[in-house]
Structures are given as C-alpha cells and as structure tokens.
Design a binder for these strands. Sequence first.
DNA 1: ACTTAGTATGCGAACGTTTGCGGCAACGTT
DNA 2: AACGTTGCCGCAAACGTTCGCATACTAAGT
Lengths: 333, 333
Amino acid sequence: MKHATIVDIAKKLSISPSTVSRALSDHPDVREETKDLVRKTAKELFYSPNPIARSLKSNRTSTIGVIVPEIEHYFFSCAISGIEEVASNFNYTIILCQSNENYEREIENTNLMIRHRVAGVIASISLTTKNGDHFQEFTKRRIPLVFFDRVCDDVVASKVVIDDFKSAFDAVSYLVGKGRKRIAHFGGSKEVAIYSQRWKGYLEAVNKNSLPVLEKLMTDGELYEEHGYNSMDSLIKENQTPDAIFAVNDSVAIGAYVRIKEAGLKIPDDIALIGFSNDKIARFVQPALTTVDQPAMEIGKKAAEILIDTIEKRTIEPKTAVIPTQLIIRGST
Amino acid sequence: MKHATIVDIAKKLSISPSTVSRALSDHPDVREETKDLVRKTAKELFYSPNPIARSLKSNRTSTIGVIVPEIEHYFFSCAISGIEEVASNFNYTIILCQSNENYEREIENTNLMIRHRVAGVIASISLTTKNGDHFQEFTKRRIPLVFFDRVCDDVVASKVVIDDFKSAFDAVSYLVGKGRKRIAHFGGSKEVAIYSQRWKGYLEAVNKNSLPVLEKLMTDGELYEEHGYNSMDSLIKENQTPDAIFAVNDSVAIGAYVRIKEAGLKIPDDIALIGFSNDKIARFVQPALTTVDQPAMEIGKKAAEILIDTIEKRTIEPKTAVIPTQLIIRGST
DNA sequence: ACTTAGTATGCGAACGTTTGCGGCAACGTT
DNA sequence: AACGTTGCCGCAAACGTTCGCATACTAAGT
C-alpha cells in the first residue's frame, strides 16, 4: 500500500514529472487535455501530494504551532478548539505543545516549532515566563506570531486579548451598584499582566466610590479552588469578612463558596460573588455564579484568523484585537 | 537568520556532508577527533537537524496524530494533556484534529494523518461513526493505531479502555446497598459501545436484585445537561419519580440536579445520584456528586506509551489496556 | 524561405538528509 | 614483495516536489 507519487502518474502517462506537477497546480503552460488526463490518473492512483516533500522544497509548511500553558484548562481547551476549527477550514494543521506553566519547557516548545518550520505560532505564555527572548526567535525568522490572553509585552507580535481592566472595573462597579460596601478582591500575581489589570480595575472601582481596599493576592500559579478557600478562610479569621468578593477567576470564586457555606453565611445575601472566565462550572454551582464571560472559542478563532491572514498576506505590522466580554449575572449577586 | 545545515558544517570544516551526518549520529566509521570537531561547529552554528528533510528521506516522521471528538470536553482535554506529556518525553510531536462528532469530518482527519505520514495515531471515535473503514487505512499502511475510550470494535488495533460494564454495575450495586429500590438509568445511545456497556451493567445490577428497570435513553450526541434535565422532567410528569439515578455522565447528572431541586426534592434523601467521569464540576455542585472516576490523563498517557512502544518496536499484535476506575463517593448518595 | 511568437513539454537542479559503495592510505601478515 | 585488513572518508543517488531554462513543434507574419 504505497503512496502514489507524481512520478507514478508521469510514468503511467509517459510524460515528465514536471508536466504532472504543473498540470496538478493548473499551470497555464499545460494543455487542457493533458491536465484532464493527469487529474484522472491522479484520482485512479489515489494520489495526494506529499506535504513533506513540498515543505522541503519550499521551506515552508502549512502547520500552525500552538503553545498553551495547560491543555486541560477549560479556557485553553476551548481556545484550542476555536483555533483548530479555523485552521482546518483553511487547510492548516496544528501541532500542539503545553508548557505546563514552566519557562524552560516553553523554550523547548519554541525551539520545536522552529525546527518544524511552522508557518506561524499562536501562544499564551506561562505564568513563570518573565522574559520573551525565546519568542523573539520567531520575529527574527519572520515567523508570524499571535499571542492570546496571556501576552508578552516586550515582544512585537499580534495579540488577541480582552480588556481585563474594564471587565474588572465593570464587575466591581456592578457590586457597588448593588449597595455593597466591603468588596474584596481575590487576585493573582501582579507580575502577570492580565491579573495586574484586573487588580487595577478593581482598585479604580473601589477608589472611585471611596470604598475600602480589601485584597488577597496569590502568587505564581496559585489560582485554584484551594487558594480561594484559603483566602476566604484568612479573611474570616482576621475578622475582615467582606460583603462581596470579586475573584480573579471562577476556580478561586468556587473555592470561596465552600468556605462561605461552611461559615454558615448566605450567598448572595451575606456575601455576593463574581468570578472571571465563565467556566462551565459557574452555571451549576448553587446559587449559580455571576462571572465575566471570556469567550474562549472566539478568542481562539480570532487568533487563528489573524495568524493565517498574516501568513498569507505576508504582512508585517502586528494587529491587536480586543474581544468584548460580558458580565453574566446569575444568582450569586 | 537562516538555519544552518549539515552542508554548512561540512564547508566550514572542509569535509563532506556525509561525514558530518555520520559524525552527528555517532557512526563508528568516523574518527573521534572529527566527531568532536563536528559537534563543536554544530553548536557554534546553532545547527539542529531538519526533521522535514529527514522525514522525506526516511519516509517516516516522529509525529503522532490525535483525533478526538471535541477538544473542549474535560475528559478529552485531559487525555490529550496526558498524550502530549508522554509524547514530548519521547521526542514526538503531536498533531491534533477534532471530528466534532461528525463522521465525514473524521474521515477527512484520517486522510490528513495519512498525508502527513504520521508515525502513529491515537483516536477516540465520534458518536456518529458506525463504520471503521477509514481506520482500516492505517492498518493497511502499517501505521500503528491506538483507540481510547470510544473504540471501534471492527478494527484490529490497540485499545485503552475502562471496564464500563463493571463500573456501572458497581455504581448501581452501591445504590442498591444503600437501600434504593427504584433506580433509574439516564443512558446514552445503545449504538455506542461504551454507553451500551454502562446500560448493561445497570441492567445486570437491577435484575440481580429484582428491582424494576427505569430508564431514559438519549440518542446521538444528546448527553448534555439539558438532556438530564428533560429526562428528569419527564419522569416526574409520568409520576415515575425514582429514589436514585445512575447517569451515563456527569453532565446528565448535573442536569437532573437542577430539575430535582426545582421539584423541591432533596438530594440524597429523596433521590440519590451517581454520575460518570468525575468531571471537575462534580466536586463543586451541592451536594457534591458521587461519580465513577475515569482517569483521563492516565488513559492518555497509557495510549501514548503503547503507541510509541509499537512504533519503535515495530510489533504488530495489538494490546488492550483496561485502566481501573473508582467510585468516588460524595454527598449525592 | 525566413524570422517571430507562442504553445506545450522535458531536463535538471535544488531543498537537507541518509547510506551503500568504493577509494585510499597505513598497517600487519605471509 | 604481494596481499589482506582496518580505519576513515567522499561520491553519488535517493526521498517527492517545484521551477527556471532549454527545446521542439506549430502557426502566423514578412
């Protein structure tokens, strides 16, 4: 069961491989009659072009590299799904790597992409990445690069993001509008741009309304349920119980839920909660969690569209797309 | 910023490309002294072998193709994560496709894999796939194939599965042990092997204990929250309210939760619930959902291990691995 | 009969790598 | 002195494709 090649077709028709190649790419130099013949036998032999040979010759592939911190995060898996969707529509294949939130691993991933001569790269950087030098390799080699969600500001590249500042500001303002006075923020590391922006949005909203700042910030990669639980726990022990919480993501919010219920407090009567991302889980906790919807699939699609456009038009100037978010109001507020 | 090639090294050292190639692959015919020289200049020039050229020559790649129904499902994204983990340890790259539960799309995906000369394929079939002919193409071409979770029984290939029958039987038996008498099953299409097995496990357990069969089976791809909600809804309207439910997956169970609470019934006092998969969400509903833990990441890892082993040992006989499941008991029972 | 132009095809090199075969020293063996 | 052995290396072909150039043939314009 060998693959038919252009040479097989050529032999069968007693013509040269060059003519077959041209016929298949509909080159005007080839007679229509010959083209038909070639196309017919190509079908008979189940010919399909060898992308490897083609890549070697042209020194370019139709492969898109995707680097994400962790595939199993709902946000990332949705984004990947969107990327795959668009890529396959444009006949690109994707090769996938995860950095596991690890800087060294991310460097290995970028090297792999370069070795494989990817046509372009879509990436969301790891929490432990403070330095974008490894991404500069792409721009040096003129490989188009699109960041999404967690972008790297010291690299000139296209970006698909949300307005974290405004989303946070709006969410907290909503809590203010509901009459909440002691609004806490359970935030992420300020070293990560998106978390820092959400934190600033929170600050802006509480300051503007002359409310106290009440925050628990977590460090690198500590953005899971247990950290939300612990933050709530320490506020309670410090006798600083808030009447509302804006959490940096849904997991942290859900963690807080558990501790709040353990304390016998009511959501939203005693404490209102807002999360971030609109994870699948947000709809099914009781009461359902109000959260900022971050349309992951759209972000992925947009990233892929920008990338493919850049690849095919060979443009250089990077674009930035800001995807609108929406505050989904549910039972927790 | 061009890539250094073997020829560049050869020119710099005034030796032939063949010697460089052999030196880099540590061939005994090359003097140790020369090898050192080659390795040194290779480093200087940032040489890294071109996998495309290598593939063209050898007609094999170190790429693993992965086909899943939908990337954003937690089970699949975890499995992919496991696959990526193992693959990258063995220096394989993965190319990723989703079938979107669509038979035609799945066929396109398999063709893509063949065109790209993948070294092997890991797949979980779509719900609408009744026929495995497109997977036969792999075996015809001696491309190793490993199915996981949703396997295709008419194709001879390795398989990584769980014991759906036993898992279901044990889960339902547990409900029986808790004194439940009217145990319903919210199941999937019997055309899909895994759902059929879970259904049979349920039947075995209720029959063995002379309990009534009470079931709501859904058709193709209808395994989301709303279908659980609807199934519960119709049982209530038919006045057939059960005292326990074994759901084919966690989403369906969660859907049932909502309707049960709407009806003013208590979980687990009035109705006990068991799901399947141990989705992330199962821990955070109230009360937390008892469910069958299906260790997705381990399944993915195992699939990758078997595949790589088959690729490198060039063995032919397919293996089947059964990954043990565990009933995670939580508040819903 | 001559160039001129156009049309359709083939030739051969190239992309970067691997590998069988053969060359050629230098050495030891008879 | 003739031969075999061994160690180290180069030549050249091959993988499948593309493309610049050359070539052959036809048809038309002087």
